[in-house]
Design a protein around this nucleic acid. Sequence first.
DNA 1: CACATCTATGGGAAGGTTCCCAGTCTTTTT
DNA 2: AAAAAGACTGGGAACCTTCCCATAGATGTG
Lengths: 344, 344
Amino acid sequence: MTKRPQNMTILDVARLSGLSKSTVSRVLSGAPNISENAKKKVAEIVAETGYQRNEIARSLRSGRTGVVALVIPDIANPFWADVARGAQDAAVNEGTSILIFSSDWDPVREKQHLQALVKSRVDGAIINPVRDGLEDIEQFNLPIVLIGSSASRFPDMASVSSDIEQGVALGLDRLASSGLGLPVFLVGDNERSASERFLQAVRRWAAKRNVDCSGLIVENGEYNVDGGRAALERILATHAVPRAVFAANDLMALGAMQALRNKGLSCPDDVAVLGFDGIAAGEVTTPALTTVAKPSRQIGDEAFRLLMQRIEGGQGDRMTLPCTLYERGTLPARVNEPQPALMD
Amino acid sequence: MTKRPQNMTILDVARLSGLSKSTVSRVLSGAPNISENAKKKVAEIVAETGYQRNEIARSLRSGRTGVVALVIPDIANPFWADVARGAQDAAVNEGTSILIFSSDWDPVREKQHLQALVKSRVDGAIINPVRDGLEDIEQFNLPIVLIGSSASRFPDMASVSSDIEQGVALGLDRLASSGLGLPVFLVGDNERSASERFLQAVRRWAAKRNVDCSGLIVENGEYNVDGGRAALERILATHAVPRAVFAANDLMALGAMQALRNKGLSCPDDVAVLGFDGIAAGEVTTPALTTVAKPSRQIGDEAFRLLMQRIEGGQGDRMTLPCTLYERGTLPARVNEPQPALMD
DNA sequence: CACATCTATGGGAAGGTTCCCAGTCTTTTT
DNA sequence: AAAAAGACTGGGAACCTTCCCATAGATGTG
């Protein structure tokens, strides 16, 4: 068991191996034009002494830290945890570490995080901006990849997002195939822009399908289970019982299911429920939640790759990933033929 | 809008303010014995130029990075995400950032992470060791706080864990109060030591209550929903239908509920199910999962505090946090008076 | 043979901060 | 009045690496 000497430096390795610090440094960072002998000698000493490069000194000189930041609204939200997991898995292969910041939907806190992140000199950042106007985001001259729906507000920046329009169409087509009309909609408070995009996609779908959507019923709520329950309860109190509910995220959809149960309404027989996210918790309810799934891990994974490209000086473009339908138990069976795919 | 000059250093601030770099440094780090004039002057220049200290250079000289690591099995597991959230919230107030590593229950990957973590010179680490024998953990002379059940294996290290014995007793007493006998047990594969501690707590409870536990039925499974379902299915295939199931974690409990539903057994009427963790997903099932909740956020929070103490040179002791019962719908009503609390 | 090119190495500087020590000036103590 | 203590400031060294430039020998080319 070699003990880890605290104050070993590259100079000690140089001395012990009879080489110069420059050569040792080159061996350690895999530079070309090194003799076999030097490589062997250094490897030997390193194995013997357990020397480890001081990453901080390295960063100071080279300007790179090997750390990237991930700024998301809430790590305790399963969707974001999945995104984080995807990024993490991609990062570990590159020897990069991930600094995670939860902004808790709080613009002030997000701002603090952004500053902390610049201060700690990360190599780049993957950000889901909660603030509707994060105008100064371009001011940080730092490689950044945006994730989530706000990406569209910054057309010049690299981004990875799920295809909301396609996902919404997928969900609405599925509802239509069960012979249900336009559902009522539950959307989150926290991301005004995300909600707008969602509803915009709904209107666009309606236009294409020649469905009248003038009387759209939309209720806002907090982006969690309780928020979804409360939102649907408000609808039930003021409107006729709808045939279907489409929530802009799974947590709210789960809340909607609770609201139905509390009212003694059966799902899917009385009211169908459709979610949007694809979180694991949707599998364990009774019935299990049918939902339009975003490719959460893949978003994290691709965002990380794109970020690495940008850090290495590449351009890094905009990426839109398709959603898929997790067909489970909260929708009645199909009665119609599925509509043929639309051409744009 | 002040632009962020790239190459401003403390020397520039010194020059512009007519002070020496030493004095500027002292002002910036809030050292004592500075004239009001110097403070004002520096504040002025900083405000004017938007100068930010280079944290890397700072770290190199001072040896502290303002970053701590959190090593957990899986960030996508809601329990661990909650722990992370607790630690994160505590950290943000101290101006500390958190580097999150998911080991994915893989000892090899954990080892990699531990090395990465030492290399990146974090100030300390909060670790839930997955390896049963992480013997060399003490070798890192780095402030460490252990979380989770393996803490007991390292009696000399600071740790925060939930009181498994108390939690198990809480659950078993609750089952007893519904007139149910000893349940069958579902435990996870991944953490052998955790499972052992859980079963040990069961036996200890049985001894105190004079309950015969010689014929304990225990099934192992993967630490997730599918694992729990499969484990209970194996029991159902080989034994009489039990009156109650006690899973060592919530995900497996949710799986158990699925297994029951698939068999056409009603919960809680035919079989009661009790979980252990207190994750949010347990609220949305039908019926909602009754469970012994660990104080997950608080664990993260206290672990972070303890770590800060240790980093500042303090001792940092061992902390055990009590579990609470989330009384929901998967247990039948109580029929007996609750047993009086035991004295140890 | 003279010259250019390539390979392998070494030494000094730089990166931006904090820490230590010394020094000045003012205030308190004996 | 002299000495000691305190308040405040400045300069050099240190932290540990990588980067740049110079050098020496080996190899190739006309």
